[in-house]
């Protein structure tokens, strides 16, 4: 059946591909090119589709905008706040779940629940938990003598609140991936290490971690990239605002503001392009580092 390509087979293939390509070219490939071009449109009039000039002024303006700089900083803080904790917690939970205990299926289900639920809905629930006077979190903290914290209205605590919500939401996904990775590790490596008298910590460090490094590598890429794209959580948690005093303004939120609230299409496209570059660079860095240090079985 896999014969040499002919014009006839090409035509047939194109017929099969037509519906998918029509959608993907219009809504995936063309906009990638277009968004790159739009970032160079200055004085762009969207309603009349008039482009007055092309140039780098959007990018210059972007990096002179203190809000954009803050959005970049906040996004980096968010990534640093979420990714390491989430990876450590989910790896630990995955290892516990993998240790041949009863009810591990039930636990897995519970940890995975947030993943299938709407970000908007759970963020609203969390905004109620974070309530400064009647919220559950301050109530629990009160047991330990902590004074009520204005989680959602104090600029110092808005980002921690967002980070807590995001870790809770994303934990299940990472656990599932780690579990899949752990289950593909051959039991005999552990047995061999045990016979050689390796301690539990040693076995973890010298057997589990190296064999799990492809999975770690994948989870880190996905987590970092997803964290760079955070938006829904912020919109719902702070009721359509980027936190008190822009304390939860991130790059995607900045794109949304410029694009949808201020109709600055050129500037918004330039900001989106910066996001793309960041995500792209991280993928490349991780690929290079990954190739050097990742041990494949």
């Amino acid at each position: 059946m896999m014969l040499k390509p002919t014009w006839k087979s090409t035509l047939k293939a194109l017929l099969y591909l037509l519906p998918a390509l029509l959608i993907l070219v219009t809504f995936n490939i063309y906009p990638i090119v277009k968004s790159f071009l739009m970032s160079f449109y200055t004085n762009y009039d969207f309603f009349k589709n008039i482009i007055n000039e092309r140039g780098f002024s959007n990018f210059i303006e972007l990096f002179q905008d203190p809000n954009f700089i803050q959005a970049l900083q906040n996004t980096v803080i968010f990534v640093i706040g979420v990714v390491p904790i989430s990876i450590i917690l989910s790896l630990a939970i995955a290892i516990l779940l993998n240790s041949k205990i009863k009810f591990s299926g039930l636990f897995r289900t519970i940890y995975f629940l947030p993943f299938v639920t709407s970000v908007v809905a759970v963020a609203i629930v969390w905004s109620w938990i974070f309530h400064s006077d009647y919220g559950l979190l301050n109530y629990f903290l009160g047991w330990f003598g902590v004074d009520p914290i204005d989680w959602l209205t104090d600029p110092t605590f808005a980002m921690p609140a967002l980070i807590i919500l995001s870790i809770w939401k994303g934990l299940g996904f990472n656990i599932i991936i780690f579990l899949a990775g752990l289950q593909s590790v051959n039991e005999q490596y552990y047995l061999a290490a045990k016979v050689d008298g390796a301690s539990a910590w040693h076995r973890f460090k010298s057997v589990t971690l190296p064999l799990l490094s492809p999975t770690m590598f994948f989870v880190s890429i996905i987590s970092i990239i997803n964290a760079f794209k955070v938006f829904d959580e912020i919109f719902a948690l702070f009721n359509g605002k980027p936190g008190p005093a822009n304390s939860a303004l991130t790059v995607v939120y900045y794109v949304y503001q410029k694009f949808y609230e201020e109709w600055e299409f050129g500037l918004a496209s330039a900001a989106a392009f910066v996001l793309f570059i960041i995500v792209f660079l991280f993928t490349i860095i991780q690929l290079i580092i990954g190739r050097k240090f990742v041990h494949y079985q």
């Binding site: 490939i29 739009m38 938006f231 792209f280």
Partner: peptide, 24 residues
């Protein structure tokens, strides 16, 4: 080539496509 181009698009975050898709 077509398959490689399609896989390449997976690297682009969906948020980047928002504005041109809105215009379309």
């Amino acid at each position: 080539i077509i398959f490689a181009v399609l896989l390449g698009t997976m690297m682009v975050p969906g948020e980047v496509l928002l504005i041109p898709n809105f215009v379309t």
